[in-house]
Design a protein around this nucleic acid. Sequence first.
RNA 1: CGGGGUGUAGCUCAGUCUGGUAGAGCGCUUGGUUUGGGACCAAGAAGUCGUCGGUUCGAAUCCGGCCACCCCGACCA
Length: 515
Amino acid sequence: MAEKITARAKNYPEWYLNVVKEAGLASNSDVRGCMVIKPTGYALWEKMQRGLDKLFKDTGHVNAYFPLFIPMSYLAKEEEMAEGFAKECAVVTHYRLKAEKGKPLHVDPTAELEEPLIVRPTSETIIWKSYKEWIQSYTDLPLLINQWANVVRWEMRTRLFLRTAEFLWQEGHTAHANAKEAEEETHRMVNVYRTFAEEFMAMPVLVGPKSDGQKFPGAIYTLCIEAMMQDGKALQAGTSHFLGQNFAKAFDVKFTTQDNKKEFAWATSWGVSTRLIGGLIMTHSDDNGLVIPPRLAPTHVVICPLGRNEAERAPCLAAAEKLAAELRNLPRNEFFGYEPIAVKIDNDMKNAPGYRFAEYELRGVPVRVEIGPKDMEKSACVVARRDVPGKEGKMMGIPLGGAAAHIDGLLRDIQKALFDRAKKMRDDRTTTANTLDEFKQLFPVNADGEDGELGIDALKFVYAHWDGTRETEDRVQKEFKATIRCIPFDGPTESGTCIFSGKPSAKRVVFARAY
RNA sequence: CGGGGUGUAGCUCAGUCUGGUAGAGCGCUUGGUUUGGGACCAAGAAGUCGUCGGUUCGAAUCCGGCCACCCCGACCA
């Protein structure tokens, strides 16, 4: 078998890039740090959008759109945000080029903008500038708005989906009449993200606040969902920020309360991005390629008719078409977003069967059906589940009559099996450190101060006591390349002693190496 | 911004040390044989060797400048 994909155990980052490229999700573009999202990758994003958008609408939000360009002075108004993003902003300074015969195309120096525009790294500032006009009275609140957009953050180093200079995302920006409602919203939305991650992506997550060192610039606090990848590293998959009155004050957004007083509005913002696709890949995929949980799969089932000649193929193809129709006509339900099961018939007989099977495995189609002459004799088919790769995942002799129902059930089983497997991995690789020595062993650093070459089984999520200070957090990051990922809501609650400083600790927090 | 590496066919790369008119595998096109886990045969199309300059009778190859990308750091919600 031609090895298109490096084994995870051999080189995990290379495996990841191989999967992204061989499954046809995305490729690097000519623009440094920016990717081309190919149809298969974009279809996955569309499925994610659809799932999330429904959850947003169900919680009372509406979509709107704000400009790509933001006057530089807007960003300057919120000091923490300006400081946080200054180093990674793309800046537009001119509005015209000059095309002269015999000269290369160049920027027209006479067309300089009076005020530079930045390409949005996030939209709080320009949105709150609008909210100043929209919010006059407590009756205008809450204002619950989401935007699907692209943003640009000029990162030094990028990786397909996980960190790119331009990425697609959604950003929710809400305004509320009081702190309590805004905080409830912050929690509501992080729970929406948890639901999406666990029920759609089959990706178990830890939920809780970030430490101060990891929070969003301009936020009072940041809640996050944090997932474990197959190499034991953590991936921040979504964040929900309680912004207090910081942006209302920066943009002077006041409303009249019921008792005719003026008050600044309370804010939240929350977002997830195409990074989720990276997380999805690193949670479920294997050495044979992409694995997509059924609820997000653009194609749920591929049917491969087989046969050595036209006479053998014709009845197989007819059976394939019948089965496809049955699958598409199954009653729609919530599990598949009230959409029909997406079935593709692969009738490309030019390629050998093995090639075709491997190709769909590479692309992560959850269920593959094979219908060949031997099956036709028994009015049966072969059903293969992608979460069990290779021949082991094949079930022979599924009667054609009951195949549609069988596959419908199997898709649900696969969704559950993927979640259970991912959760088991995370739980098996979660531990505690009660002393500094234990911690050192869990996050070894080589002589150069680098994190060294660890096998993919080495890293863990580590619960340890921390004194709550920024100072200790920074020290741990520097010495062990490990960061506080999250202070889980449902984590252990016993108090103790910080293993780094010896000071009292209220609660254990989760340390990990991160993407 | 530091350290390392790479630019040769659509893709992956050999050829560079030792200068002599451009190679392989995969992919693609055509025809034929195949078809239950990545088939085979034959013919064919395809490259101003990243770029600019220098040395030379002659440069992918030697020398110099520049550009781009990748990897490792630093940085990063």
